[in-house]
Design a protein around this nucleic acid. Sequence first.
DNA 1: GTGAAAGCGCTAACAC
DNA 2: GTGTTAGCGCTTTCAC
Lengths: 335, 335
Amino acid sequence: MATTIDDVARAAGVSTSTVSYVLSGKRPISAPTRQRVERAIRDLGYRPHAGARALASSRTDVIGLMAPLRVDVDVAVIMQFVTGVVTAARTFDHDVLLLTSDEIAGMERVAFGSMVDAFVMLDVEAEDPRVPVLAELSQPAVLIGLPRDPEGLSCVDLDFAAVGRTAVAHLASLGHRRVALVGSPRAVMERHTSYAERLVEGFTLGAADAGVRGVVEPCEASSAGAADAVARVLADQPDVTGLVVHNELALPWVLSALRERGLRVPDDVSVLAVCPPDVALAQPLPMTSVEIPAHTIGRVAVEMAMARVERHEPAEIRLLPPQLVERSSTAPPAR
Amino acid sequence: MATTIDDVARAAGVSTSTVSYVLSGKRPISAPTRQRVERAIRDLGYRPHAGARALASSRTDVIGLMAPLRVDVDVAVIMQFVTGVVTAARTFDHDVLLLTSDEIAGMERVAFGSMVDAFVMLDVEAEDPRVPVLAELSQPAVLIGLPRDPEGLSCVDLDFAAVGRTAVAHLASLGHRRVALVGSPRAVMERHTSYAERLVEGFTLGAADAGVRGVVEPCEASSAGAADAVARVLADQPDVTGLVVHNELALPWVLSALRERGLRVPDDVSVLAVCPPDVALAQPLPMTSVEIPAHTIGRVAVEMAMARVERHEPAEIRLLPPQLVERSSTAPPAR
DNA sequence: GTGAAAGCGCTAACAC
DNA sequence: GTGTTAGCGCTTTCAC
């Protein structure tokens, strides 16, 4: 299609600006004119040239999505965030430019090159080097996660501290007095990944509040890692009856490790997973879980970004309340 | 940065075109001039405006990546293709625009809007409705996968027919006479997903060639699905000693199902996986596998796309030869 | 080896 | 309610 806005204008017998305004809706157009223009657009199969539009309007209708693809984080979960963001972006007529590898350089290239209207950034660490850079850019940004200092950027995340508290509270209310958190891989913790730390904090405080003993074990994302973590939990606390697992990749292996030790779920030990619903349902036993609404978070991130772009709303921080779904993997402890 | 190419020209005491040519290298520039310009660019922190450049040159330096995020396909594998594409794109100074949901409309919007220089498309089906549309666009496209009729588009994929043959041949050479393929979910087969069908074909032919009995069972991507598939295989062929598993999500569950039936790998049954190397290594036992070089395929796809954009090379079809890596999950059958 | 200037296709004043 | 037109920032011919 080499058709331009002028072709359309000519075909419709109006001026270019009228076509432009029909397209943008930024000024009233009489019904007959609008119809003639829309007809011409359809007949010619006209599509505005994105570059020309970006040049003239300094809007690109593109959102930059930074998704660092680290090891040790479940890409399936990342992907849910990504699809959430892409789907939501489309509802705002935006496309998504994906940045993965050379994060910081990429941000600057894309920002200074005016390739995007806003950024959404996944997998934020407490002291994330990308945050100060992002804060300096002219485009607004929304972080999925919570750095120690957001520096005026918008943030959205599940309230992982509340997740930790909710999870312990559920086990405690069933009567469990000895519980453990099988958490993120050590590497994730050492990066001070924000969600992992907040979950541990909530879990620990929640355990104290409920008067139950709660230990925390990191867990590598492999069969052997899960077996190890389970072994360490049982060594430390042989009478444990409640497990919180926050590690999608390890979850199946934690369950096999328990089975291999002759521990039945939920009869001998209750297991509560912190994960997206589909992961909870893919296990041999439907898992009671605190849901990670990855799709929702992605959507909210885009909404927040667009609010800043379109209505210049101020940056805000939103922590979504956790939701517990009881399925078959938790029960009162055996007496 | 509101600095433009004119600011740079002024600072360097040259004309705008000279700056442009320094940037593009499209005509010789004397060393001193080049240095003054480069200095000015650095001092001012100048970055060309992507939209302006796209408008003037009708090149965007962006590749459109279509990654349909279907159920039943392992997103981890998809993600490997995606990162392969993104990483490769960067080596060509290109960024990646990600399309997921509204495939066909998205393609047209992005193509007619001149937002990308080329397309790469994942997860191609035999009769993929996106292919004819893609074939009509002015931008070149590379399919990862092989439709029945590529309609003049470039294609790249692992040679899955050869994978099937290689897998059976390996088992046969170890002495196995009764083998089975635990394959993709039924839904994937019913979509006539190209790789799944070609693998089955190669497996079947390979079995015939080697004079071994080979049955094929689809397998759902869940614990229960895997258990079912294993049950069906054993019902049909109780003396099976060799399994080929082409289903990343089900692989762990296939292994547990075997264990639960008291079948030891590789003592009682050899298992050969068709999967990316990291999946092969994440299992309880390092798996002998035919590798799916997702990262490589992604890279090759980008190289082919750029060859068409930059050098107008004709479309081609490349099937990458499979590579077998022996690890611990296959052995001669017990006597 | 370098410069001047004509667009690329669109938006958004500024007119009426 | 509609038209005219001056840019937006770059690339690339054409000229020297």
